[in-house]
Write a protein that binds this DNA or RNA. Structure first.
Lengths: 330, 330
DNA sequence: AAGTTATGTGGAACCGATACCACAACTAGA
DNA sequence: TCTAGTTGTGGTATCGGTTCCACATAACTT
């Protein structure tokens, strides 16, 4: 592998001049610039990122933490972040936390060792005070998930509103016995709590009391959804509609319901969250709450680069529109 | 951020000794090892990977190229590779080629600059002679996709057999008018060609001639599948069954067919490929050919590490089982 | 007892880039 | 014409590790 010294030697110039050409510094004559460029091409030279990272500050790499890429929502989010980043000349380093605190910390350490310039977190496992301690090594921001303190820039959706319009839609369809599936455990802060609030608000506004038996927590996958439906079938007093925190769980419910001979939405109305591809694949197609993934990615990169260029930037939240997509499952 | 010198100073020893402790070298007395460990903990020291990469050889990082992570098949493949890698103490660096030759080359360059120890390619965009030129900088292997020369270790499935058993299944169900969707263009080598052969073999064995009007190339997405169905509907002489190169295309066909009032499998039998989650979500559930993603990931890492440890290793192919999953769409 | 070999430690060069500093040459203003 | 500023170039220290080499001491051989 050719090094900067090889290029310097071949072009008959110094390493400094070569470095200036690489980095588009001023004060290099056109003639020597040409010489360097020619030598670089001839040798197939590529600067060694390790050396640059070690010496310089900027790595032009942004880290993105997701819980798991097999979740299509996050796959699409990564995708949109990467697209936006590459337009700005940044690379993206993907890390999966697998919902594990230690894995998350391991990834945050990339900031310490200057492997990435900044980190976009799409989920948080550790408490904020743990994460915060890494902030001195580089900017950290949140996209999708959030904490309810103004500690870092956040790209967020109004989850309260999302859950509210979803629940409201069910109420407008005439339902009063509404079940609720959430991904989090009890979620003292962040997405889960806000959705809970939106859901509760919609119901209490029309005087519906929530039946605690119809609350399902820690539901994530299609399998979880199937299991929820089975539980519902065993109840004497069954809900007529169900609000879920993800299209996958909703999908599981729809699939299992059909297997058991239920008609959707007549026997059970189901509403999802995210507007993932699965929502259109299901039969009946899923009514869901759309999260604008592409916008989220774009905005994240925009804000991240702003932070990188101006570390003293004011911390603020960016709220993106959330929208109800009515299809056939309600 | 603490450096090795800080640790050396605090423990009252030399950088050399600290380095030996980090790397588990012999010839360090227990007493000094303890001192170093204590100092490391006290400072929250983490070795800087850039510095290690720059000087040393090993990066304990393996690169994986996929076309795009939003394709669930590849998301799962990455996932299984990452799981296996992390068990062996390796990290994984994910690169998306977006089916673009230049992006693929850019990723291969990580090998040149010692950012990764080796690369696992799950798809190939460039000709092998382009890719081969990077082989001198580190091991390259193929997983999923392959070329028909014994140039690099390959983890592959017998695609010919896969297509053969799929087509055969349709024939056994009584179909003689069978359409064919493939992902590749004309695919002079690799997966596409082998599948074509398997498909042709099954048909010609029972004396069926292929109708060129029923061959659809370059089909990848759900949308593509919908489009294929519309084309079929416009034909005077329609196929009664269709073999597709991916569950997504098959899914699109199923969805569009239902919209047009066709009954599957009565009016049209559909068979997919990959056994992705979508196969079980669809209604009717998709008959498909399963690729053992978890096995593929495990085996890839096993072989990659073997290559890293023994560069002179014999090049061979590893064939994994492929299997027909019969559900409701045929 | 003298000569090997095994064990333990530190100094310093080195990996490949960047950036500070010194200096040369040229341009412009007074 | 002289000083001050602009433009262009190279030498060298530096980033944070690893590794070669020299050297010291302890443990075995004959």
């Amino acid at each position: 592998m050719a090094t900067i010294s090889d290029v310097a030697k071949l072009s008959g110039l110094s390493k400094t001049t070569v470095s200036r050409v690489i980095n588009n510094h001023p004060y290099v004559s056109d003639k020597k610039r040409e010489q360097v460029l020619k030598a670089m091409k001839e040798l197939g030279y590529i600067p060694n990122p390790s050396a640059r990272r070690l010496r310089g500050q900027l790595t032009t790499t942004i880290g993105v933490i997701v819980p798991r890429i097999v979740n299509p929502f996050f796959a699409h989010l990564i995708n949109s972040i990467e697209q936006a980043a590459s337009e700005k000349g940044y690379q993206v380093l993907i890390g999966q936390s697998y919902e594990d605190k230690e894995k998350e910390v391991a990834f945050l350490n990339l900031l310490k060792t200057k492997q990435v310039d900044g980190i976009i977190m799409t989920s948080t496992e550790n408490d904020w005070n743990v994460i915060e301690s890494y902030n001195e090594y580089g900017p950290i921001m949140l996209c999708n998930d959030y904490v309810n303190q103004k500690v870092a820039p956040m790209i967020r959706l109004n989850q309260t509103k999302g859950a509210y319009i979803g629940a409201n839609h069910l109420i407008e369809r005439g339902h009063r016995k509404i079940a609720y599936c959430t991904g989090g455990l009890f979620d003292e802060q962040g997405k889960g709590k806000d959705r809970n609030q939106g859901f509760q608000k919609a119901l209490s506004e029309v005087g519906i009391k929530i039946n605690p038996k119809w609350i399902f927590i820690d539901q994530h996958t299609i399998e979880d959804g199937k299991h929820v439906l089975r539980q519902i079938l065993e109840m004497e007093d069954r809900p007529t509609a169900i609000f879920t925190g993800s299209d996958e769980v909703a999908g599981g419910i729809v699939i299992a319901a059909k297997e058991k001979g239920l008609i959707i939405p007549k026997d059970l109305a189901v509403i999802g969250f995210d507007d993932q591809p699965i929502a259109e694949i299901l039969d009946p197609k899923l009514t869901t709450i759309r999260q604008p993934v592409d916008l989220m990615g774009e905005k994240s990169i925009e804000v991240m680069i702003e932070m990188l260029e101006n570390p003293e930037m004011e911390i603020r939240n960016y709220e993106l529109p959330i929208e109800l997509i009515v299809r056939q499952s309600t």
